[in-house]
Simulated scan of single mutants.
Amino acid sequence: MGTDTLTLTGWALAALAVLLAWPAPVLLSHARWPRRSPAAAMILWQAIGLAGGLSMIGSMLTWGLAPLGDNILSALERLVRIVFFNAPVDGLGFWHVFALSAAALLGAHLVFTLVLTYLRIRRQRSRHRELLLLLSSPAAEPGTVVISHSAPVAYCLPGGARSVTVLSDGLLELLKPEELKAVLTHENTHLLQRHHLLLWAFAAWKSALPWLPTSKLAQRSVNELIEMLADDAALRVVEEPVLIRSIALVGAGTEKEFHHTELANVELAEPASPEDSSERITTARLDRLIHPRPPLSTLGRSAVLALSLLLLAAPTALLLVPAL
């Protein structure tokens, strides 16, 4: 009976993993409503990622443990006795060992990639910060520096207390005071809301599972959503036409000119693929502002949050309830 229960749990988790690996992210990436409420969409993307990873590992784990006990806890207890105390391996076949090994390897791979991505990004940002010390000068605004370049450049470099917003001479000459205010608010919002942590997590996810549709679509969508979240913050301090002009002016020059400078050879954040280009994101941001639509209703946002909680609860319940 226990074997049947764990086997059925494994199949249920596998079905959920497949759902969250392909149809769900494809549908969400093509939906229009995330632009109306980017914060709710961001939560849903995180839920899809966490639930999908837990379902993949959980399905292989339960398949492998099926012959070892009546539930997850008893099966894990027996597995520990087998591994560390040479207990008998009755009923544990080749495919069960394979499933257990795959679950362990996948879990270790995800954690290792997360740590490796963090170290790589930290190293890149450290080098970038050293270059800024040599090539920039302080700006009038606190926590802001200016680099000498004709292209309109604006970005933020996270680093806790050492976080800094970087502007170029070309940007300062091109933008009016209100437009500059919009740009600074946008960049400071990235730092205040810790958007770099989201980028780190989704970049690691894509590095770990580059073949998975979820990881590619999620990173592309999250890159776009965090820009829209920062735009919403800017709209609270400037008028919409001002923000539109600032986005258009900055986007027109950054992609074509800045990437030839020595400073730009250091990755500003997480590496982006062609479909994650600044040009594509700029176009989406402008389209959202030029053709505004009302945000989701309270009921709509509540439904998205409820769905996110359900996605996280489903694999957890499938793993834990049979053990009770």
Rank of each mutant, 00 (worst) to 15 (best):
K206E: 14
F85I: 03
A306M: 09
R129S: 03
L44D: 09
H195K: 01
L184H: 00
L134P: 01
L199W: 04
E270C: 02
A102H: 10
P158Y: 10
S101C: 14
P294H: 03
V250N: 01
P294W: 02
S74V: 12
L92E: 13
A154Q: 07
L305A: 14
I121L: 08
D287C: 10
W200K: 00
F94M: 09
P158V: 08
A31S: 13
I43F: 15
L13S: 00
H186D: 08
I121Y: 10
V146A: 08
S126A: 07
N188G: 13
P295T: 06
V242H: 01
L319V: 00
I247W: 03
T283Y: 14
R129A: 06
T185M: 15
L305K: 00
E257D: 11
E178A: 08
P67T: 06
Q219V: 11
V164C: 12
E239S: 14
I281C: 07
E179F: 14
P34R: 03
E255F: 03
D90T: 13
A204E: 07
P38S: 06
H196K: 02
E239F: 08
L263A: 10
P210N: 04
D287F: 09
G91F: 14
F112W: 13
G170C: 09
L175K: 00
T113D: 11
A14I: 07
L311F: 03
P34I: 05
G49R: 02
A15H: 05
V153C: 12
P25V: 15
A252I: 03
L172Y: 04
S136K: 01
L135H: 10
P67I: 14
A306L: 12
T3R: 15
L311P: 00
G58W: 05
L20W: 05
K216L: 15
S148L: 09
L157S: 10
L116E: 08
A87F: 13
W63I: 05
D287R: 14
Y155Q: 04
G2F: 14
P241T: 02
L324W: 15
A284I: 05
A201N: 03
T62Q: 05
L65V: 06
I82F: 13
S59L: 07
I226S: 00
F98G: 01
S137M: 09
T7M: 13
K256N: 02
R293G: 06
R32M: 08
L197M: 05
L249H: 00
D169I: 12
H195I: 03
A151I: 10
K256Q: 05
E178D: 13
L217I: 02
P315T: 07
A252S: 06
L100W: 12
V237L: 08
T282A: 11
T282M: 07
A51V: 06
R32K: 02
H196D: 11
W95V: 05
R78W: 10
P210E: 15
T283H: 14
G64V: 13
V266N: 06
L320M: 11
R120A: 13
L65K: 00
